[in-house]
């Protein structure tokens, strides 16, 4: 142990073990992506994107309504979480030296750790119980709670990175502070905030648990916010636990579409920050 050779050996073994662990972690990622490719691509067809689900036994059918449903749900979620998250983030960054801001930061961090199923139950007690029906609105509300912490904290971080000299320049021109924050500070931070929003959207789009008893599911077209609506994750779940081979094939294809959407959002988001990182 104390000899130089012994220490050197331990060093090499430990370092190799760390590298090995990294490779072990990449195996499941590769495994999931490989099976998605293998089982998903063969199931892909144009009809999946244009047709409604068909009853069991009839060949064909698709999940067009689920794709549109996911987009609608995320749009509803954004309409709540974007203004709240961004403005809350602005508050934390610009006026956040006090106790109240600490409480907000704490709540946002803790909220991000609340299980998504609990968020679903919360949305159920607020919307479904009072409206006496499952609705896209309830589902969108649940997703907005999931997006909120990410948006708030990234907005705060990014706004803090904006140099004070920009604020001072704005004020020196006689622009009121609120105008400086909106037109100068927020604008400068916009690419980074967009990253945060995209990551939040990617996460929300893949959530299943909060939708199970809020948006429910729907085998037909629906654009109505107060009716149940289909979504890709719930559709994948329904198909995956069904006993029918044809539905299993569609589940894999739907999962491939969902993962492609989520990964593209993630990679785009990283690209934006990567460029910004280069400038700093």
């Amino acid at each position: 142990m104390n000899s130089y050779l012994g220490r050197k050996t331990i060093d090499i073994v430990a370092r190799s073990a760390c590298l090995a662990a990294l490779l072990v972690a990449i195996v499941p990622l590769a495994g999931v992506l490989f099976y998605l490719g293998a089982k998903g691509i063969s199931g892909l067809s144009w009809g999946l994107f244009t047709e409604l689900p068909k009853p069991v036994g009839e060949p064909g059918g698709g999940f067009a309504n689920a794709i549109v449903g996911t987009v609608i749900l995320v749009a509803i979620a954004c309409s709540v979480s974007l203004p709240v998250g961004v403005f809350a983030g602005v508050y934390l960054a610009e006026f956040g030296g006090n106790r109240f801001a600490k409480a907000v930061r704490f709540s946002a961090d803790v909220l991000s750790g609340v299980p998504s199923i609990a968020v679903g139950v919360f949305a159920y007690t607020i919307f479904v119980l009072s409206m006496r029906r499952f609705s896209a609105l309830a589902g969108g509300f649940a997703l907005s709670i999931i997006m909120l912490p990410t948006i708030t904290r990234t907005t705060e971080e990014l706004i803090k990175l904006v140099p004070d000299s920009l604020r001072e320049a704005g004020l020196a021109l006689g622009i009121p502070k609120w105008r400086v924050i909106i037109s100068v500070v927020l604008r400068t931070g916009a690419p980074g905030i967009t990253t945060g929003i995209m990551l939040a959207v990617a996460r929300a789009a893949g959530e299943t648990a909060p939708l199970l008893f809020t948006a429910l599911n729907n085998r037909y077209w629906s654009l109505d916010p107060i009716k149940p609506i289909a979504s890709l994750p719930v559709q994948i779940y329904t198909y995956a636990i069904s006993p029918f081979d044809d539905w299993h094939r569609q589940a894999w294809a739907a999962a491939l579409v969902l993962v492609a959407m989520v990964l593209v959002l993630n990679i785009l988001a990283r690209l934006i920050t990567y460029q910004r990182g280069g400038e700093r």
Partner: peptide, 8 residues
């Protein structure tokens, strides 16, 4: 790995 949805 963290970005892949739970249902997948």
């Amino acid at each position: 790995l963290a970005a892949i949805p739970s249902v997948v």
